[in-house]
Write a protein that binds this DNA or RNA. Sequence first.
DNA 1: AAGACGAAAGTGGTTGA
DNA 2: TCAACAACTTTCGTCTT
Length: 302
Amino acid sequence: MVGSDAVKCSECGSRNIHRDLNRGETSCGDCGVVMSESEIDPRSEWSSFDGDTSKVRTGMPTSFLFHDKGLSTDIDHLNKDYSGRSLGSKQRIQMHRMRKWQRRSRTSSSFERNMEAALVELSRLAGKMGLGKSVREEAAIMYRRALEKDLIRGRSIENMVAAALYLANQKLKTARSLDDFERHSRVSRKAIARSHKIIKSALKLRVEIAQPEQYVGRYANLLELPFIVEKEAIGIIDRARKRDLTHGKSPTGVAAAAVYIASRLTESMRTQREIADISGVTEVTIRNRYKELCGDLGIELD
DNA sequence: AAGACGAAAGTGGTTGA
DNA sequence: TCAACAACTTTCGTCTT
């Protein structure tokens, strides 16, 4: 990494930069913007099975984001050996065979071709939605398993990738609703909803249903609200749950209302319109929810 | 003028016969 | 498969700051 002077957030200028080596991500601790991804993990790999701590290989740790998990070695097209000498005809024929074999093994099976196409779409969609590497990895694993179970045949890759990403997002609680997916994917929310259920049951995945708290952090971020507001909003939701005001209500609606109340209780108030815009919940619903919450929790807004 | 309010009608998803 | 149902949205006129 460069000197600390150069490490400033490109968005807000903050120096509160957080580097997550596990996810290969550098992000701003204040506004949450991800500044770079897919960095090479500078640490050596510690996993060794014989107690010997020597590095087995260098480069990035293995990742499910490459269809061959990033471990393939390229056989180049020059008929030279490592020292640059030309190869004899015998070796040349052998090299030719190896290259052909390599091409086959890497992409010729329909499985690998599908996986490759899926990963391209996965990274496109995840990038567009601002989803980090851990979610992408999780989605890639789910997709791979779905592909192994032959769930993809007859359905579009685009559709199933969106479904896998949606599931991964739920599992890792990264707060993206079906509406968010519909906004960024060409696949309809209906199709994503249907496919994600198929994957979920076939892979026997247990994913907790979304809770309002999960959305608070993201909303607060998008609204550039300080952390106290976030904390306040989570407190409100906590109390609301104890009074059973959250059951059967959409988590986004509850979260949006809680953020609205919290923002009004502090100096950094946001309008219903602003919150509606970033959350995808209408002003009317925010109103209904926040009236409910204020009434039952005895919160007074001036 | 902007924001908040609430009534009324419409939409899409869930549930249970 | 269908109807009933609650939550949510859309639209719009009115009130408040």
